[in-house]
Amino acid sequence: MDKLYTLSVGNTTEYGVADSEESMRESAGDIDPRFSYLPVKIDEVKVEGYEITLTSLTEDKPKNKGGRPRKEA
C-alpha cells in the first residue's frame, strides 16, 4: 500500500508517494532535483485515528488550462 511522505530541505517542503521510505529516498530526485544531492528529511504523513488513502490520477487526470478565460472582442 502506498504511503504519503513529506520531503524537506531547508524551507522547501514537497509531498511524495511511495510504498516505503527506502523507495521514497530512491525517487526523491524525481520530485525535486535538489533532493538528489542535498540531505533530505523524509517523514511519513500520519493522522492519528485515520487512514490516508491515495488514488492515482494518471489515467483520468483533469486538464488544467490555467489563466483567465479569453474576453470576446
Rank of each mutant, 00 (worst) to 15 (best):
T53A: 14
G10S: 14
P33K: 08
E48C: 05
P62N: 02
L7E: 04
T12N: 14
D60A: 14
M1K: 07
K61A: 14
E26C: 06
Y50P: 00
P39Y: 06
S20V: 14
R25Y: 07
E26M: 09
I52L: 14
K63E: 08
Y15V: 06
N11D: 13
G29I: 02
P62R: 01
T55K: 03
K65L: 15
A18N: 13
R34P: 00
E22C: 02
M1T: 07
E22V: 06
T58D: 05
D30E: 11
S23I: 10
S27F: 02
T12M: 14
I42L: 03
E26I: 08
V17N: 11
V9S: 06
M1N: 05
G10C: 13
A73H: 11
L4E: 04
T58W: 00
K46I: 15
L57Q: 11
V9E: 05
P62H: 02
K63G: 01
M24L: 03
S36M: 05
G10V: 08
T6I: 09
S56E: 13
R25D: 01
K71M: 06
G29D: 05
E48H: 08
A73C: 10
K65N: 15
I31R: 05
P39D: 12
P33I: 10
D2Y: 00
Y15I: 08
I52Y: 08
L4I: 07
A73G: 15
D60W: 12
T6S: 13
T58V: 01
Y15N: 03
L54H: 07
T58F: 03
G29S: 10
E26L: 12
G67K: 02
Y15T: 06
K3E: 03
R25W: 04
I52G: 07
R25H: 08
E26K: 12
D32V: 05
D43G: 12
E51R: 08
K46C: 12
S23W: 04
V17G: 10
E22M: 04
R68S: 10
E48P: 07
L54M: 10
Y15H: 07
E59I: 03
Y50I: 03
D2F: 02
Y37T: 13
A28C: 01
V40S: 02
A18T: 14
S27Y: 03
T58L: 03
V17Y: 09
G66L: 15
D2S: 00
G10E: 12
Y15K: 03
K71W: 04
R25M: 07
G49A: 09
E22D: 07
N64G: 06
N11K: 14
M1F: 04
P62K: 00
S20I: 10
S8Q: 15
P69C: 13
L54A: 09
N11R: 12
